[in-house]
């Protein structure tokens, strides 16, 4: 016993080192696992306040580009607004009452948030935004902005949230190529923050450079048809089932300053309905 104690005493530095490394390993695993609420991330109040002050100063330097982006956004929305009446009119010409499916219209709610912390150059990138659980933000809500998909909420504190960026190793988006295929996935491949890979497009599809990739709307996080990117290179490898395609992302992630949090009002209903068939699948 005494020898054991002496042994422990002699190697106490090494044992402490080992102990701390094990803690680190445990923290890394915890952090990667699905939705664990911890205090140690940039949404905690001290860290977020420091970042917020820093952002207050630096945001002035990008006002010009921000204004330009907002003007473009307004133009896009204006165009969408102009399209709307045409869809509505011709439903029932006998009664002259337009029947609009209002259910579909109000399925998603958007909330604007400011980006106070951002990264694009690491293997797993995150953003911090200035809306939190007090504003009704919950983990796993989608985040869009800058004309395309941004990511989804990972942690929330009272007034801030951490967003898993699209530029993250574990992030797959259910997507589709416009007018061509309904189900494929987009995933970032770590190298360049402006390109991602398009996965699971079968070979019989006529995939071409310039095709638009948008969200599929199947996973109840994002609405349908939110832009993701444009196909930039296409390769057909021998003896492979799927295309080897890269897409250029619509968003310049390093320039994001405002994003919108998507809340799917019917999500619970959809998820609980779908969970009924899970046991049969297994």
């Amino acid at each position: 016993m005494r020898r054991l104690l002496l042994f422990l005493l002699r190697h106490r530095a090494f044992l402490l080192f080992l102990f701390l490394e094990i803690i680190c390993g445990w923290l890394i695993v915890q952090n990667n696992s699905y939705q664990s609420a911890t205090f140690f991330n940039s949404s905690n109040s001290i860290a977020a306040n420091i970042l917020s002050v820093s952002n207050d100063v630096t945001s002035y330097f990008s006002l010009r580009t921000e204004n330009k982006d907002l003007a473009q956004e307004i133009a896009r929305l204006q165009a969408k607004l102009d399209e709307k009446p045409k869809e509505v009119i011709l439903v029932d010409s006998t009664t002259n009452i337009a029947e609009i499916d209002t259910l579909e219209e109000s399925r998603y709610e958007f909330q604007t948030a400011e980006v106070i912390n951002n990264s694009t150059r690491r293997f797993n990138n995150y953003l911090t935004i200035d809306k939190g659980s007090v504003d009704g933000v919950l983990p796993n809500m989608g985040v869009v902005g800058g004309g395309g998909v941004v990511g989804k909420i990972k942690y929330t504190s009272n007034h801030y949230s951490v967003v898993t960026s699209l530029l993250h190793a574990d992030f797959y988006i259910s997507s589709k190529v416009k007018d061509k295929i309904n189900l494929c996935s987009t995933k970032w491949d770590h190298l360049d923050p402006s390109y991602a890979s398009l996965l699971f497009v079968p070979k019989h599809i006529n995939l071409q450079v310039g095709d638009t990739v948008v969200t599929s709307g199947f996973n109840s996080i994002y609405p349908e048809d939110v832009p993701i990117g444009v196909v930039s290179t296409v390769q057909i490898p021998e003896e492979a089932t799927f295309f080897n395609a890269k897409i250029k992302l619509v968003n310049d992630f390093s320039r994001l300053s405002y994003v919108h949090i998507v809340q799917n009002l019917m999500r619970n209903e959809k998820d609980s309905l779908e969970s009924l068939i899970q046991p049969e699948n297994e």
């Binding site: 490394e21 803690i23 923290l27 890394i28 952090n31 905690n44 860290a47 970042l51 797993n124 995150y126």
Partner: peptide, 15 residues
Amino acid sequence: DIFYDSLGIHASATV
């Protein structure tokens, strides 16, 4: 790590 949202990664390297 708190500021980088990479809990444990920097800590393991510095330790």
